[in-house]
Write a protein that binds this DNA or RNA. Structure first.
Lengths: 181, 181
DNA sequence: TAAAGCATGTAACATGTTACATGATTGC
DNA sequence: GCAATCATGTAACATGTTACATGCTTTA
């Protein structure tokens, strides 16, 4: 996934490896971490596959290399963005993808979100069924915490579903936040 | 982390590697995946460190090895359960830990939950600050989706905080679920 | 002039998955 | 008898982090 995150980060403007790391940390970093040890080798790999090009920065005094995404790289990035290869167990991965959805037109974005929404609903049904089974058992007290993780799974999915419904229709994001801080 | 998940799974009753995988999938599996390729080598490693012992199952006709946790293994597991070495970025890791909190007495569990709660609040403050900065910018439309991931981070943290508050005081889990399914 | 930050990169390690190899037993 | 499941294990790969090596520039 990181190669695509990097391509997405380079999509609008050329950056050095160092800058890429900062951009990722400040942007999609909530859901995706990247260290130099992963970034630089991937940059070399993307070069090899003609996804990006590179030029040394002259006159900066620093040993900088600035990377630019190629047309081929843009194509590869966009096709990843439109692909539905995400397993529902990794919500964070999908959210990281959505981070770049400004580069998609609305129908394509909606297709993605709908597909993800559907997977979430199946998972939620599954969890609710598990909960039904648990709930009729005696001495709930003995596995309160085990049960609590199941509940966590349920409320997490419900939160995700709400979020999907808002962004699918580009509704106001403020609707999501109930409390004030 | 997986070694501890395995120790926790073995805590109450001896199991074979095969059974461990099924137990994990059915239990903490929502937040933690494990394949044979990781389980069996770890089992061998836990043996080497005297965390578990092993006996071949006689008469089953199958080539089974049943693993039992040792006192040393129990000690190691409990000290992991009580340790606060989790970074807040991995909520799932904490939830997976909570799965085993039935083995902790209430004060120890509360210490853990409080510490995690505190980290979450710091993160939430940070995200809300970021949101403040974003919110006053013009042409929000150009980065609607980028902003949406920030909102996702916020509601996710709020959901986690609610969950922490419920389980900290062993309140009714049903309070968490708003909707009916 | 020293510390902090800019900037690139590698080697060792950590952690896990996937696919494969092997073979037995159970249930239809 | 055949498929599904039980059962263990390994080798190759995937993906990433941490710590290190190197050296420059900006700022106090």
């Amino acid at each position: 996934m990181l190669p695509y995150i990097i391509l997405g980060t380079l999509y609008n403007k050329p950056l050095t490896g160092y800058e890429i790391k900062k951009m990722i940390a400040a942007g999609v970093g909530l859901f995706y971490k990247a260290s130099y040890g992963s970034i630089y080798p991937i940059l070399a790999d993307l070069m090899k596959n003609n996804m990006i090009s590179c030029e040394a920065v002259e006159g900066s005094g620093r040993n900088q290399k600035r990377y630019t995404i190629t047309d081929s790289g843009k194509g590869s990035f966009l096709s990843w963005l439109k692909s539905c290869d995400l397993d529902d167990s990794k919500a964070e991965a999908f959210v990281a993808k959505v981070f770049f959805f400004d580069k998609l037109d609305m129908p394509d974005a909606q297709i993605q979100i709908d597909a993800f929404h559907q997977k979430l609903e199946l998972s939620l049904q599954d969890l609710c069924k598990q909960r039904e089974e648990f709930i009729h058992l005696p001495n709930q007290n003995c596995f309160y915490y085990k049960l609590s993780t199941l509940y966590f799974g349920i409320v997490k999915l419900q939160g995700l579903l709400d979020w999907c419904e808002v962004i699918r229709n580009r509704r106001k994001l403020e609707d999501l936040v109930i409390r004030n801080y």
